[in-house]
Simulated assay, not measured.
Amino acid sequence: MTVVLAGIGADSTNVGALAPLYDDGRFEYVPIPEKTRETREAATLGSWSLRHGDGVAADLTTRIRPRPGDGQLGAVTGSELESWPLHRDPNFETLTYGEHRPGYVRLLRSLEPGDAVGFYAGLRRPSGDRAHRYLIGYFTVTAVDELTPDIDVEERERLLEAHSTNAHAKRAREGELYHAEKPVVLVDGRVPGRLFDRDPIRLSDYYVKTGNQRAQYYLRESIAEAFSIVSGGTNMMYKPAYECALSGEAFRDLVENADRRMIGVDTERND
Score class of each variant (00 low, 15 high):
101 R>E: 12
261 R>F: 06
128 G>C: 11
177 L>E: 07
48 W>V: 06
75 A>T: 04
115 D>Y: 01
32 I>A: 13
163 H>T: 11
50 L>C: 01
137 G>A: 06
88 R>S: 04
60 L>S: 09
136 I>P: 14
234 T>N: 07
1 M>I: 01
47 S>F: 01
14 N>G: 05
32 I>K: 13
9 G>Q: 03
202 R>W: 04
97 Y>N: 02
113 P>Y: 00
216 Q>T: 12
77 T>S: 10
239 K>G: 01
86 L>I: 11
262 M>E: 15
9 G>H: 09
20 P>N: 05
150 D>Y: 02
129 D>N: 03
117 V>C: 07
8 I>C: 15
96 T>D: 10
44 T>V: 03
266 D>H: 05
30 V>C: 07
22 Y>S: 08
121 A>D: 06
195 L>G: 10
216 Q>H: 15
131 A>H: 11
22 Y>K: 08
94 T>P: 00
32 I>Y: 03
263 I>G: 03
258 A>P: 00
228 S>D: 13
53 G>I: 07
248 G>V: 08
21 L>N: 06
229 I>F: 05
4 V>P: 02
73 L>M: 13
254 L>F: 01
117 V>L: 02
260 R>Y: 06
220 R>I: 02
6 A>L: 13
36 T>E: 02
109 R>Y: 00
150 D>N: 07
239 K>Q: 13
217 Y>S: 15
42 A>Q: 10
70 D>A: 13
178 Y>H: 11
152 D>A: 12
17 A>C: 13
199 D>T: 11
83 S>V: 10
4 V>F: 01
160 L>Y: 00
157 E>R: 15
115 D>W: 03
231 S>W: 09
186 L>W: 00
86 L>H: 11
